[in-house]
């Protein structure tokens, strides 16, 4: 009875969730470092944090939440057999992601323009806590950005599969798992945002 793995939706979701756990732990290592160094350099972290642009951070949070909404609605759309709408919603997700990466690009280039990047002379010469804060900031948002890009490619592929009829109301596992991945990216950002942009 359990021998048709390709129709076992729960099994497929279980596998995806297990993968999400590994992603959670991966970022967990970075949050662990954040916690430890924040404990050690509370003042330096607060000062460094004010140098990040919280307006851009907030904008990116709202953009990412919206992209997640689109992804979740795409699942509902496919479940209801509304393929065209689902493709549109996935397009919306990817558009939001592009917006997110654009803002991220401006933030990063502004920081790098001010000589703030891992190993820069400015940070090496500054107070120790500041260098740690910005190294963590670049590593965390960098790896997160990489996940955004991977998620985009994944969702784009799934979008094409919806168009070609490979993902349907009867067989939408792939979309569901892709959306789960996307929500994880959002989930991580929900914690990055207050920790880096708001604690000052």
């Amino acid at each position: 009875m359990t021998h048709q793995p390709h129709t076992d939706n729960l099994g497929a979701r279980l596998g995806m969730w297990l993968f999400l756990f590994t992603e959670l732990l991966l970022f967990g290592g970075l949050f662990l470092l954040y916690a430890v160094y924040f404990k050690r350099y509370p003042h330096e972290f607060a000062v460094a944090g004010t140098q990040l642009n919280w307006v851009m951070g907030t904008a990116n949070t709202v953009i990412l939440l919206t992209s997640s909404l689109c992804a979740a609605m795409a699942v509902t759309a496919v479940q209801r057999g509304e393929s065209r709408r689902a493709v549109g919603l996935i397009g919306g997700t990817i558009l939001c992601a592009a917006g997110f990466m654009t803002i991220k690009y401006f933030e990063w280039s502004e920081k790098i323009g001010h000589g703030i990047y891992p190993g820069s002379a400015h940070l090496r010469g500054g107070v120790p806590g500041e260098s740690v804060f910005f190294s963590l900031y670049f590593m965390t948002t960098g790896i997160h950005g990489l996940h955004v890009l991977i998620g985009c490619v994944l969702l784009a592929v799934i979008g094409f599969k919806i168009t070609s009829g490979a993902v349907t109301a009867e067989n939408y596992n792939l979309l569901e798992n892709g959306a789960l991945y996307w929500h994880l990216v959002d989930l991580i950002w929900i914690f990055i945002f207050p920790l880096y942009y708001l604690i000052l």
């Binding site: 891992p118 190993g119 940070l123 120790p128 260098s131 740690v132 190294s135 963590l136 590593m139």
Partner: peptide, 18 residues
């Protein structure tokens, strides 16, 4: 790798790392 290639200094005492 980041420590070696970028000089993040997260584990480098001179830069405040541990």
């Amino acid at each position: 790798m980041a420590e070696r290639l970028l000089g993040t200094g997260l584990f480098e005492p001179a830069q405040g790392g541990d």
